[in-house]
Design a protein around this nucleic acid. Sequence first.
DNA 1: CTGTGCATGTAACACGTTACATGATTGC
DNA 2: GCAATCATGTAACGTGTTACATGCACAG
Lengths: 171, 171
Amino acid sequence: MNIQDVILGILNKKPHSGYEIKQHFEEYFSFFFDASYGTIYPTLSKMEGLKLITKESVRQEGKPDKNVFTITSTGTERFQTYLHGPVEKEVLRSDFFMHLYFGDMTDKETVEKLLRQAMEEKQTMFDDLEQKLKKLDTKLGTYQKMCMELGLAQYAAFIKEIQRVLELDFA
Amino acid sequence: MNIQDVILGILNKKPHSGYEIKQHFEEYFSFFFDASYGTIYPTLSKMEGLKLITKESVRQEGKPDKNVFTITSTGTERFQTYLHGPVEKEVLRSDFFMHLYFGDMTDKETVEKLLRQAMEEKQTMFDDLEQKLKKLDTKLGTYQKMCMELGLAQYAAFIKEIQRVLELDFA
DNA sequence: CTGTGCATGTAACACGTTACATGATTGC
DNA sequence: GCAATCATGTAACGTGTTACATGCACAG
């Protein structure tokens, strides 16, 4: 999976501008992927050069112009190849786990604070995602919802487990 | 969190060689962090230059020589700063979620295969981690175990949720 | 006239991986 | 002699971020 594939997936539904693609990232899959403008715009240029997408300038009322990108048949092909291809191993990079792992080199209060903070953050993420799921209910397909429900399930498990250890070891 | 901090954490317990550090990564926190030799060795050289660690060549019987690194007081200081500093946001990069998200652009069989495969992989990771936890039981501190138990809880939730959707939508 | 949102883009930098290259020692 | 494990290291490459730079349009 690279950003190109992800962009192709989004454009496969309908044309978007770079700015809209970034919004889509934040709105729909912030919890398992993200990319900055610094990646998106150069990637779009590159993909245009590779004839995977085409650019069209669109005038808007009350807003600046935007460059809307449309997927080409080559792009669709490439995306289908991605979809049917192998699934890359999931990568988690967690500073929370690292801090916890080395927790015995600090005091108990620091660890407790770490755990409480992590729990609160996860709770916020849970709430946000749940709210998003409710709000977008009709706009989402089965599999999009499935993604979110899987995310929620993992968040919930994490929160529950933290609560358990907080009660057990920090009573 | 960068690799330097992680290496300092490992060396804070006892001196290690680059090779041993890599093994430690795989053995103890493969599920939330990883790094390759291509990162480890240059980083160790850099850290030696920064006086965070010192190198010592050690002869072994039946094995080639190794460079063992020891943390300095500057290194310990730096690690304490890391430990008490802010916790970076967790980053997940999941190709599985991406494939699932765009699942409606393939056929149901492909998605089912995707889900089953993901479930099996998570089950394997669960089993491995559980086994590791049992095997290392006495060698692990409270917080190390906590990390693993949190990992297990998340894996279990994921597996359970996948099973649910498989029974519900793919009956 | 200023802040906010919309919109695009670049340049410097950090970080990390993969593949390559080397070589010791042991066990078969 | 060869495969496996131990052990170290580099060079090329890819990928992505952050900070910077610019500018339109609207609302208050």
